[in-house]
């Protein structure tokens, strides 16, 4: 274990991972909706930093652009449009019985994954190597070109579906809604 602490990479890992877990915890427990979304930003930014630590630069910047840039803004819009109770509010979560049950379930899940992983992999080492964007591009447009096209169809379907669902149907004789 003293070997583990002697590597600088592991200190960088701790500096990133500890705030990430704390921010994720606050994101699911905070009583203020907007604070919750802002803690999600911290957790996602830390996950982008972990990707940089692993050398996956393209994925890291994609997380910053797509998640922090677009998804979080969408969440803030969703909160404002549905008039979720702003400010401190007790009605945001279920009661104590549900919370205790959920804590048991998620704690058991965490213990299960941790025990199986540590028993399975032990202290197998991992050496980070920077992955250049051209390697990702080569692989995506040669080996993974069909999934890539399928994802483009999924995005198109989501675009059309979003417009169809969110648009207000014009009522007869009420042209102003149009």
């Amino acid at each position: 274990m003293s070997d583990w602490f002697s590597e600088t990479e592991n200190w960088a890992f701790l500096v990133i991972a500890v705030p990430m877990v704390l921010a994720a915890f606050r994101a699911v427990t905070s009583r203020n909706v907007v604070h919750s979304v802002l803690f999600l930003v911290v957790a996602l930014a830390a996950s982008a930093a972990l990707f940089l630590l692993l050398g996956a630069e393209f994925v890291a910047w994609t997380v910053v652009l797509v998640y922090i840039g677009a998804v979080v803004v969408l969440f803030l819009f969703g909160i404002m449009i549905t008039r979720a109770p702003l400010g401190t509010e007790t009605q945001l979560s279920h009661n104590y019985q549900t919370k205790i049950g959920a804590a048991l379930v998620s704690g058991a899940l965490f213990a299960l994954i941790t025990v199986t992983t540590v028993r399975g992999f032990g202290d197998a080492n991992l050496t980070a190597r920077p992955t250049r964007a051209d390697e990702i591009g080569q692989s995506m447009f040669e080996r993974f070109v069909i999934p890539f096209e399928v994802v483009s169809v999924v995005l198109l379907a989501a675009l059309i579906g979003g417009i169809v669902l969110a648009r207000r149907d014009p009522v007869d004789g009420d042209e102003a809604v149009r």
Partner: peptide, 28 residues
């Protein structure tokens, strides 16, 4: 770096997500 440390952090984040799905009332 070890592979386990990343998986443990991933497991912590996933469990917190499960906790949030089970306890939150607001759909957003």
């Amino acid at each position: 770096m070890m592979i386990s440390q990343f998986i443990i952090v991933g497991a912590a984040l996933f469990s917190l997500g499960v906790y949030g799905v089970l306890t939150r009332r607001n759909a957003v």
